[in-house]
């Protein structure tokens, strides 16, 4: 469903991504692992168009999306949940959801506020609260829910568990599984392998702006040198 080939991205003159390539199968969950600064967030930002790639191809379903503006990429069915969450602090929870609402897509049951409140019960009680006055975990749920209102087929999640209490991380894990059951694909950037182990079908390890290892969890468990080399602190 998503093929990325030889992707190179820059911040100003500094090259961040060097020939990044990988593919994600429909309905699967892939995790980008890597240390701080490995380029995980930049991959996601390049995919959604916030950091337009200089060269390389990004094919999503039937469309070439590299270089399109973010709103066009989002309309092809990619949702993006940034690391900083970027909820609209002065809008209420219900209004935040409204900003994400897009028409339904064939083959996917359309998300509604009611269905999302069922997925994230904590949000249901906060409908009218300004989003800026919620806890970090609640804001993370809202950020995910807001993106789902666009009925994406692929969701890019940047460090969804960062800075959250273990209980909140659990809830997000549950939500990710529920999404996969709906047939939504996910690409999740994470620093630690724990979350990945819980949800991922495929692991992509990044270092210095390139994908240096990919495979299943079992394979990564078996490959101690790779774990030491790329992931140990």
């Amino acid at each position: 469903m998503l093929q990325v080939e030889r992707l190179c991205s820059f911040y100003g003159r500094a090259q961040i991504l060097h020939d990044v390539g990988f593919a994600i199968a429909p309905g699967s969950v892939a995790v980008l692992l890597g240390r701080n600064g490995a380029g995980k967030s930049t991959v996601l930002k390049s995919l959604i168009g916030l950091v337009p790639p200089q060269t390389g191809r990004i094919r999503f379903e039937t469309a070439d999306i590299a270089g399109l503006p973010p709103h066009r990429i989002a309309r092809t069915g990619i949702g993006y949940v940034p690391e900083e969450r970027r909820i609209f602090a002065e809008l209420t929870v219900a209004e935040n959801l409204e900003t994400g609402r897009r028409p339904p897509r064939p083959g996917l049951a359309p998300w509604t506020a009611a269905r999302l409140f069922a997925l994230f019960p904590a949000l249901a009680e906060l409908r009218r609260r300004p989003a800026g006055r919620m806890s970090g975990g609640e804001q993370q749920m809202l950020a995910i829910a807001r993106t789902l209102m666009g009925n994406p087929r692929l969701v890019l999640l940047d460090e969804p568990g960062e800075g959250l209490a273990p209980l909140m991380v659990r809830q997000i894990e549950v939500a990710v599984r529920a999404l996969r059951e709906e047939g939504v694909s996910l690409l999740i950037a994470e620093q630690g392998p724990a979350f990945a182990r819980a949800v991922a079908d495929q692991v992509l390890v990044m270092e210095k702006g390139a994908v240096v290892w990919s495979g299943t969890h079992a394979a990564l468990d078996a490959d101690a040198p790779a774990r030491r080399r790329y992931l140990a602190l």
Partner: peptide, 12 residues
């Protein structure tokens, strides 16, 4: 508040 985030939600 955040035009880039809104664009990522598909709004032109």
């Amino acid at each position: 508040a955040d035009r880039d985030m809104l664009a990522c939600l598909g709004v032109d």
